[in-house]
């Protein structure tokens, strides 16, 4: 459906607003609650849920840039809900939207691309604090972290093979959760579309 006048919104714009608001609401409510409760792996939970919403959104707005716009809406809502800018979460939302947008725009909205988007987003969440700190504090912080990591490894007596096992387990976790979230998002899009049709029919809306 196209715009008929400058002030009239297309259905795509409406869907972008709805999914952006849902993502923003998720960040404002659940994200803030989980953070304040100091629950570990909050970032992974939030990314998995956000991915499900944005993939469902993309299913209903099948055009380039829609995920990025949903992310932009969610990030701005988060800024205004917090009364100011907090670099970490805002930056994370925008990068997640950008990564998902690139993958889905390149490969199309398929099960494989949705699963890949899930894996990539969760992998990014792992390194997000390092990237955010690199931007905030400069390159010296990475050197400090590496030296701390090396000292910690030596102190605990962890050898490189044990670290590889830990890394492998982490990769398995990311691939499993990311794939599950991606596939759930793909499925949810279809289900939402069917339910929207049903609700419209119940309300007598075309």
């Amino acid at each position: 459906m196209q715009n008929q006048a400058p002030m009239r919104l297309s259905r795509d714009t409406l869907y972008i607003a709805v999914f952006g608001t849902l993502w923003g609401l998720l960040e404002i409510t659940l994200g803030t609650a989980l953070k304040s409760l100091r629950i570990p792996f909050t970032g992974f939970v939030m990314v998995a849920l956000a991915l499900i919403i944005l993939l469902a959104g993309r299913y209903l707005v099948p055009r380039r840039g829609s995920i990025l716009m949903m992310g932009g809406v969610a990030a701005l809502l988060k800024i205004f809900s917090m009364g100011g800018f907090i670099l970490g979460p805002i930056w994370a939302i925008l990068i997640e939207a950008l990564l998902a947008e690139i993958i889905i725009s390149t490969l199309g909205l398929r099960r494989v691309s949705c699963a890949l988007a899930g894996v990539v987003l969760l992998a990014y969440t792992t390194v997000h604090p390092l990237i955010a700190h690199r931007i905030l504090y400069g390159s010296g912080i990475i050197q400090i972290y590496l030296e701390m990591f090396e000292r910690g490894r030596a102190f605990l007596g962890l050898e490189h093979p044990s670290l590889m096992v830990l890394l492998g387990a982490w990769l398995v976790f990311i691939v499993t959760v990311g794939t599950a979230a991606g596939l759930a998002g793909h499925r949810l899009g279809r289900e939402v579309e069917a339910r929207v049709r049903r609700l419209r029919a119940e309300r007598g809306v075309a």
């Binding site: 919104l9 297309s10 409406l14 607003a17 949810l188 939402v192 929207v196 609700l199 809306v205």
Partner: peptide, 22 residues
């Protein structure tokens, strides 16, 4: 899915009421 579908339909009706959806 139900929550999102309701949100979409409610946003549509809200937008229609304000005369903003084309």
């Amino acid at each position: 899915a139900e929550l999102i579908a309701r949100a979409v339909v409610r946003a549509e009706s809200y937008s229609y009421k304000k005369g903003r959806t084309g």
